[in-house]
Computed example of a mutant assay.
Amino acid sequence: MAKELLRNPDDNSRAENFLRVWQDAFGGLGPNQVGKDPAGKARGLALEYVVYFHLKDFLEHKSAVRGKVAPPGHLDPVKPVHNPREVDGVFWLGGSLGFVECKQNLRNALNRHHEDAALWLLQERFGGLFGKGILVARKAGWRDHEKPPEKLLSTDVLEDRNLRVFGFQRPQRLEKGMIWAFPEDLEKAFADWLPGTLPTP
């Protein structure tokens, strides 16, 4: 259902069905969590769930170093604060704590990285020296007349050795680094995070 919703993001009836099934499976979502845009919330949860599903499969079954990932949907801060640093996912890999940020559009995610994604803050301040972070976008492309993503970056996300950027499209090599294909490139993107493996070229 999550994949179908992401393939048909404007189908509001599909979004309503997904929210209903989500609440049956994982517990109710209060009005504050759903907000004024239930369809948008459904799309966000669908993306988080697909990322969780593939990351769990990779870390628990396909990775040379076994890892764990927490299920999405209930990782909101306990206390309501202004601009909270909530996360879309948490994973553990070889003793490192990692954070997951999911966005519908890569261009917007990179453009608003400081204010919105805040992945660098989570990775550095809460993940520690060896903390990791991944940013996964449903749409990783951009139009020819738009600025290249590198010019939109307020921080060097693509150059950070502890951060990885993924899109649900073919991989893209940019001047500052890679935008990896999700989930096909998980093994390649995580290669130099795993002990006993060589850094990616």
Rank of each mutant, 00 (worst) to 15 (best):
A64R: 15
G167F: 11
W120P: 00
D76C: 04
R14P: 00
A70D: 12
K139A: 09
W142F: 10
V21R: 14
G40R: 04
P183D: 02
R43T: 06
P199Y: 09
E187K: 05
N111C: 05
F18M: 08
D24P: 00
H54P: 01
G89T: 11
V34C: 04
P148W: 01
D76Q: 14
R43W: 03
A42G: 02
L135W: 04
R125S: 08
R170F: 03
G133E: 06
G40P: 08
G95M: 02
K56P: 00
G94K: 10
F53T: 09
L198D: 12
R107Y: 13
L19K: 06
F53G: 01
P199T: 11
V34P: 03
L75C: 03
R161Y: 09
G28P: 05
Y49Q: 15
E115M: 03
E4F: 02
V51W: 04
L97C: 12
E159V: 08
D185H: 13
P171S: 09
L29H: 04
Q33I: 08
W142P: 01
P195L: 10
V69W: 02
A39F: 06
H61Q: 10
A189N: 07
F168L: 12
N83K: 14
L158A: 12
S154I: 04
A191S: 12
R66Y: 08
H145L: 11
N162Y: 15
V69T: 11
A25V: 02
V136K: 00
R125L: 08
P72S: 10
K103R: 06
R107I: 11
L55Y: 05
Q123L: 07
V65H: 08
I179H: 01
L152E: 04
G95E: 02
A15M: 07
L194R: 09
L135C: 06
S96M: 13
V136P: 00
V157H: 09
K151L: 12
L106W: 02
E184H: 10
Y52C: 11
D24Q: 13
A191E: 07
E48H: 05
V81G: 05
D11I: 08
Y49K: 14
C102D: 01
R164I: 01
N108F: 10
L152N: 06
A181I: 00
R173V: 12
A2I: 00
R14Y: 04
L119T: 12
Y52H: 15
R125H: 07
G95F: 05
R107Q: 13
R20Y: 12
R20D: 11
G167T: 11
A117G: 04
L47V: 09
A191V: 02
D11N: 15
E159S: 15
F166A: 10
E175N: 11
S154K: 14
K139M: 03
A2E: 03
T155N: 14
V78Y: 10
C102M: 00
N105Y: 02
